[in-house]
């Protein structure tokens, strides 16, 4: 049986992936950034990075993202962005295929076994904030997906590489070990992107879930403010932030309403990240 030319396997939190590629490059980059992560024997999801046509492996190489779950009409990406393509392929499997957990498009950090969840629109700063908190005494759980177990109500980590975008990249340049940073990718569909490997303790403890204790909706670019939000509004926002809420049916509804009824929630506006970190610490002290 024909395989793919190159293969890499990685377990992130409770989910195992295998990524097959027509090129070595993207997987070499993944191997470096994901060194020390476990590898699944039977992966939950398969991702394929394949040339659009056989000759496109060499001439103007472009990467088609495929896998167990695919979007029709997905546009190919430049091979220089192959690492990003692999990450997008993994995210796609999670977004379309994940059924074991209610998947929230949220970042998460943990302290004393209790989790802070942050969700919001793209550009709200949830990813950057979680990565910063991960460098400042919190356990980083994930910058993109929080996995809510419908049975236990616990949140499982999904500590994939942090995807730093545009201005956020500069905030980590002098702060973290350069070996933790991936290549700078310019001109991607999301602007400039650079991946950051999570702290070692985040990787070592990726199988440890936490009790959700505070839910924040951060919003970057506004005067500092904290507001309460009604439960119905939170519910609607979270259904929009979940890619598999509908697919889980009643299970998803029960898990989500339980989260909202038990976890305090605030909207948090901020203009700079240092202020935001202080505000988060204050809210955590008051509410969690």
């Amino acid at each position: 049986m024909s395989g793919m030319r190159h293969e890499f396997r990685v377990t992130v939190g409770p989910v195992g992936f295998r990524i097959g590629s027509d090129w070595a490059g993207p997987l070499d980059a993944m191997r470096r950034l994901y060194s020390g992560y476990p590898a699944p024997g039977i992966p939950d999801f398969t991702v394929r990075l394949a040339a659009q046509r056989p000759w496109r492996r060499f001439i103007r190489p472009s990467v088609m993202i495929g896998g167990d779950f695919m979007l029709p009409d997905a546009a190919p990406m430049a091979l220089a962005h192959g690492l990003l393509a692999a990450e997008m392929g993994m995210n796609l499997q999670m977004a379309l295929g994940q059924r074991r957990h209610l998947l929230l498009h949220a970042s998460a950090v943990e302290r004393d076994g209790r989790a802070l969840l942050m969700t919001g629109l793209s550009g709200a700063g949830k990813s950057t904030l979680s990565a910063l908190l991960g460098e400042r005494g919190w356990r980083f759980m994930g910058d993109e997906f929080a996995l809510l177990d419908p049975e236990s109500g616990l949140v499982h980590p999904f500590p994939r590489m942090v995807s730093l975008k545009n201005e956020a990249i500069g905030q980590f340049g002098g702060v973290v070990d350069p070996a933790r940073l991936g290549p700078v990718m310019t001109g991607t569909p999301k602007g400039t992107i650079r991946h950051l490997r999570p702290p070692d303790d985040a990787i070592a403890r990726m199988a440890e879930p936490a009790v959700p204790a505070l839910l924040l909706f951060p919003r970057f670019g506004h005067d500092p403010a904290v507001r309460e939000i009604g439960e119905a509004e939170i519910f609607v926002r979270l259904t929009q932030a979940s890619t598999n809420y509908v697919a889980l049916g009643e299970t998803g509804f029960t898990a989500l309403t339980r989260l909202i009824e038990t976890v305090p929630c605030r909207a948090l506006d901020y203009a700079d990240t240092d202020t935001a970190v202080d505000m988060v610490e204050t809210l955590w002290g008051e509410l969690a």
Partner: peptide
């Protein structure tokens, strides 16, 4: 194997939902 059982368990839930 557990990993296979878990994947198939997910599929069962998914198809139960599809049926409904």
């Amino acid at each position: 194997r557990d990993a296979a059982a878990a994947i198939l368990g997910d599929a069962r839930l998914s198809m139960d939902h599809a049926r409904r």
